[in-house]
Structures are given as C-alpha cells and as structure tokens.
C-alpha cells in the first residue's frame, strides 16, 4: 500500500545561514537550547555548573546514548524500533541469569550481544521481506523480549560478578577532577563509530538514501534489503550493549527494567532533529537529545522536593518548551 507510491518528502525548506547547511540547523538549535537549559540550571541552582554535573549527564545516560545511536540508524531508514527498551531489560536479565549460573563474563557479554543482534536481524527480516510495518513488528518484538524476561525469571537478580562490579565502580579521572565511568567511554566510542559509519561508508549513505526514498534507492541499484535489515541489527546490537551498560549501572537484571525507555530513545533522536520520516538527521543530534533529557532530569533532581506527579508534569513541560522553541527557532531563520 505504501511502498508503491512514494510521495515526495517534504524536506523542511530551510534556507541557510551563511556557511551553515540548512539541515544541520536543528542540531545547532538543539545545542543552543541545551546550553540555555544548562545555563538556566546554573542560574537557579547552586553547584549546577560543576564539571561533574556535566559529566554525570553522560554517566547516568550512557545506556540511553547507545540506545539512541541504534535508534538513529533505524529512524534514518524511515523505520522505528520499539523493542529496544525491552531488549535492554532482556539483556540485563540474560546477563544476570547467566552470570548467576556461573558463565564467565566474556561469554555472557557475547551471548547478550548475540541475542540482541539476533532479535534485530529477525525483526529486520520480517519487516523487509513481508513488508510489515516496523512499528508493529518491533512492538511485537517488545512484547517478545519482555515476555522472555519473565520466562527467565520474574524476580530481580542481582549481579555479583567481579568484572561487572569492577566496571561499575571503576572510574577514570579527567583533568580538573572530573570523574567518568567506563560506560561513558564505551558510549562515546560507539557514537564516534556511528558517525563514521553513517557519513563515511557506503553502508551509511545507503541508510540515508533508503530514508530519502526507498523505492528510488531500490531503482538506483542499492542493496536496500541488506542495509535495512542491518539497520535493525545495529539497533538490536546497540540495545544489547545498552543492556550491558544498564546491568553495570544497576548491578541487577530485572524484567521491569527500562520500561518505556524506547520512548526516551525515540524522543532523544527526534529532539536531536532527526525526522521520523527518515533520511534527515545526525547521530550527534541524538547525543544532544539524550543530554537534553538528562538536563531535564538533573534540573528536577536539583529541585529536590517534587512529588512524582510534579516530576512527570515538569518533564512534559520542559520537553514541550524545548520542542516548541526548537520549532520557532527554525521557523524564524529565513
């Protein structure tokens, strides 16, 4: 139904600021607004402007960064992956259960990565070969992954493995006394790798091409099927990595971990200026998107005495403020 009538993408008609290509504008907008938000926090709360608060943004959101990177690949092809939150939970569960069963950490890590990637491949294959809608297939994938969590166990399993514990507690001190964790290093390495893949490899450019127009990409003789499946595989792999980081962060596996985290990941990507219709966006934008969500969380934690509902309302309001400002920012630039 939708595959045969490619309609023209409405690429936002952004004219350019001198020297800045129109399509990086949203990323710049996100960046500017992020700085404003951070600045607002600094003005309002004491101790907000420390390097450690900034570093904590990365530490507390390392898994979300990885998740958002994988999600960016999928969304750039014009798809979506709702399963990632559940795959994170499944990864923590598999890791915890396998470690408890006495498997060595490297094997566990490989196992988790294989499961995540495998699920991604499976969903990608179904999406591509049967032309089912990504939303539904990955929603089913989400049910499946969560369900498997509970098949493994309904209780939370704590992780006592020394390697995981070491990763959790190990820190790296940066100049200036700022401390980060290994998770941050892994997450940033993945971001860097993703930037390279998306911009400097044929595979990456094909991802963009598919998002621009899948039918055109096919007619141009590009390996659309393979690349699309690979995008979901990457998302699955990233979810598995995020799951490992999350197990390190929580030091437990639990089927109810990361509920709704897929929406956080999608929100980060979209806030970072990526269009859900595909073909337009940057990994760095997604990274900024995660940081924006992180700052919002930090602001709320600095506020301290909020009841859980005010927290929700505040998150919603800040999110709203952000997207509306981003929108206006982009409208005004002629």
């Amino acid at each position: 139904m939708t595959t045969t009538t490619p309609t023209k993408r409405t690429v936002p008609a952004l004219s350019r600021l001198p020297g800045i290509p129109g399509r990086v504008l949203p990323v710049i907008a996100t960046f500017v607004l992020f700085v404003l938000l951070f600045g607002a926090g600094s003005v309002r709360y004491e101790g907000f402007t420390s390097g450690q608060v900034f570093a904590n943004l990365f530490i507390d959101n390392a898994f979300l960064i990885v998740l958002a990177v994988g999600m960016t690949f999928v969304i750039l092809t014009g798809g979506i992956d709702l399963s990632v939150g559940a795959v994170v939970a499944l990864s923590t569960m598999v890791a915890a259960a396998a470690l408890r069963a006495g498997l060595p950490a490297p094997v566990v890590i490989l196992l988790v990565l294989a499961i995540g990637t495998g699920l991604g491949v499976l969903m990608g294959l179904v999406i591509h070969h049967f032309e089912l809608q990504p939303f539904i297939v990955t929603l089913a994938g989400m049910f499946m992954a969560r369900g498997l969590c509970f098949v493994i166990g309904v209780e939370s399993i704590s992780i006592k493995d020394p390697f995981f514990r070491a990763l959790a507690t190990g820190t790296i001190e940066l100049p200036g006394g700022v401390v980060i964790t290994w998770s941050v290093v892994i997450a940033l390495a993945i971001v860097a790798a993703a930037v390279w893949v998306l911009h400097r490899t044929r595979f990456g450019r094909t991802i963009y091409a598919i998002g621009g127009s899948e039918s055109s990409a096919t007619l141009m003789g590009l390996p659309v099927g393979r690349v699309k499946v690979a995008a979901y595989a990457i998302s699955g792999l990233c979810a598995a990595v995020a799951g490992l980081l999350f197990s390190v962060y929580m030091l437990s596996g639990y089927g109810l971990h990361a509920v709704g985290m897929e929406l956080d990941a999608i929100a980060s990507v979209v806030i970072g200026g990526t269009l859900l219709s595909g073909g337009v966006g940057y990994v760095l934008g997604s990274l900024l998107g995660v940081l924006v969500l992180g700052v919002i969380q930090t602001l709320i934690s600095f506020q301290g005495t909020l009841s859980s509902w005010w927290t929700k309302i505040a998150i919603g309001t800040l999110l709203l403020l952000f997207i509306v400002m981003q929108r206006l920012f982009m409208r005004r630039t002629p």
């Binding site: 044929r202 091409a209 621009g212 127009s213 039918s215 141009m220």
Partner: peptide, 20 residues
C-alpha cells in the same frame, strides 16, 4: 526521477560506487 531528494547531488550520482 528516482533519486534521493535528501542527499547531495554528488551522492545521488555516485551512491553505491563512491571512491574510497
């Protein structure tokens, strides 16, 4: 016209066979 509107002209010409 079966090209990708979101990519640059150069990419549209060379997509899939870019010099590496």
């Amino acid at each position: 016209v079966n090209l990708c509107p979101n990519l640059s002209v150069a990419e549209n010409i060379l997509l899939g066979r870019e010099p590496r």
